[in-house]
Design a protein around this nucleic acid. Structure first.
Lengths: 250, 250
DNA sequence: CAAACACAGATTGGATACATTTTCAAGCCC
DNA sequence: GGGCTTGAAAATGTATCCAATCTGTGTTTG
């Protein structure tokens, strides 16, 4: 056992240990890692929600999930609670669970927070980015240009931005940003579907500009570009309220 | 019931309707205290941690809490999980739970996020502050000047800042800010104990300046003052690493 | 004498079963 | 015929019990 647990007099094993789980690498979050089986259900459910298998406003029944994942209702409840903490599920006591649904105002609120928070994370990341990460930036931009399906673009977009954050050794800010991304996943998808050719070109340009600033090592300029990128998306989104009506009606 | 009128014209057939919206909770059940045992334990534990009854790094045993609150271990587990989501507790699978402990770097990270996020929340709040809230600002500043005990000052400080945010109709940003405050509660207390007379005077001046800007209705200037206030505290904190050593050693 | 192994104790994680609360639908009264 | 009350059914919250895992100590061996 590691000496760091030498808690003869001290307390706690290493509460804040962990190699600064950045936000890189797609895959599961495994933030607090509840437990063995519960965490598997949590990951599966999150993937289901993010992938579109469960749509906003849809009801979630514990028994159904318990049977689907071959477990009891207890780990399912733990999973729902964990996802509620991530903002993906809404639990109402003695009533039930629903997939979180954002209104237009709430979605804009998320984007406003992202405008303030992600440039900070980026500025923490840029000075410490690995060479491998830098080498992958422009290819990802090109891949996004060539993406045909919405899902492919979304995955590449996520990978690109998370890669730009992979240099930050943060414990909380990275998780916060990932949560903000997850909660707006449905709307990003719907927005990408409605996006015009003109806005798409603008997005690609912003991505390339961001990559160039990062490659230059100019964290401040990169932060400015990123702020503009998120802001542009937010304003564009505010001009397409039908995104939310569609989801509400479904 | 029926308090929550579906925002989008009565779209929802019963099955897909539900309080998936973050703010919309059932009329009868206020998301705060639905009389569930788990929620009561959660609140009690949070108060215990924030109040200093449980110190950072201290171990939490489920059985002890179960007996203390006269309940089973299950609602205790739920409470720990909820508090983990708030960042107040750290859970290690199959091992145990500890009161969250922040390193100096992590604490500064929280403050940096606060610098970005709280001015935004303030700018959303200032234009819609009630007259009652405005009338209470300067008296609170004066009360802080006269506060003798640290606990009294901390309570007034929290009340003052939360009052400045009371005009914001947010669903997520407000909770985020409250979480950030809670996770640094221990360190704010320790810092207040170590604060010199000179820093105390500066804090009071900043508070008064902030109150005046808010009363003037100048949201932008208020945001600037608030940013400086948080930044000053962060820099001051970085000059007192003994705060963390004391807590680590204890 | 020190380090690795193994066992015992303790603590958490999960499954089953029961009590409580809410919801839905039929029936009754106005 | 419409609105309200009442009843049953379903879903959630909780308690108790059992299994899996980790910590810590004692022993053994080089």
């Amino acid at each position: 056992m590691g000496g760091r647990a030498a808690s003869a007099a001290g307390t706690g094993p290493a509460p804040t240990s962990g190699p600064a789980n950045g936000t890189a690498s797609n895959g599961s979050v495994s933030n607090g890692t509840p437990a063995g089986a519960a965490v598997r259900i949590t990951d599966a459910l999150r993937a289901d929600i993010l992938g579109g298998g469960l749509r906003p406003g849809e009801r979630i029944r514990q028994e159904v999930l318990a049977e689907r994942y071959g477990a009891s209702r207890l780990p399912v409840r733990d999973a729902l609670r964990a996802l509620e903490a991530e903002g993906l599920v809404v639990l109402v006591p003695n009533t039930g669970a629903w997939v979180a649904k954002l209104s237009l105002d709430e979605c804009q609120e998320v984007y406003q927070v992202r405008e303030r928070v992600e440039p900070l994370l980026l500025s923490m990341s840029v000075p410490r980015l690995e060479q491998d990460a830098l080498d992958r930036l422009l290819p990802l931009v090109e891949a996004m240009r060539g993406a045909d399906h919405v899902e492919e673009f979304l995955a590449l977009d996520r990978e690109f931005h998370m890669l730009t954050y992979s240099g930050a050794e943060t414990t909380m800010l990275g998780e916060l940003v990932e949560r903000l991304w997850n909660t707006t996943q449905h709307y990003r998808r719907a927005f990408a579907l409605l996006g015009t050719e003109r806005t798409a070109r603008g997005i690609h340009l912003e991505h390339e500009l961001l990559a160039l600033a990062i490659l230059r090592g100019d964290a401040e300029d990169a932060g400015r570009v990123l702020l503009g990128h998120i802001r542009t998306t937010r304003l564009e989104l505010s001009r397409h309220p039908e995104v939310f009506h569609v989801l509400d009606g479904a």
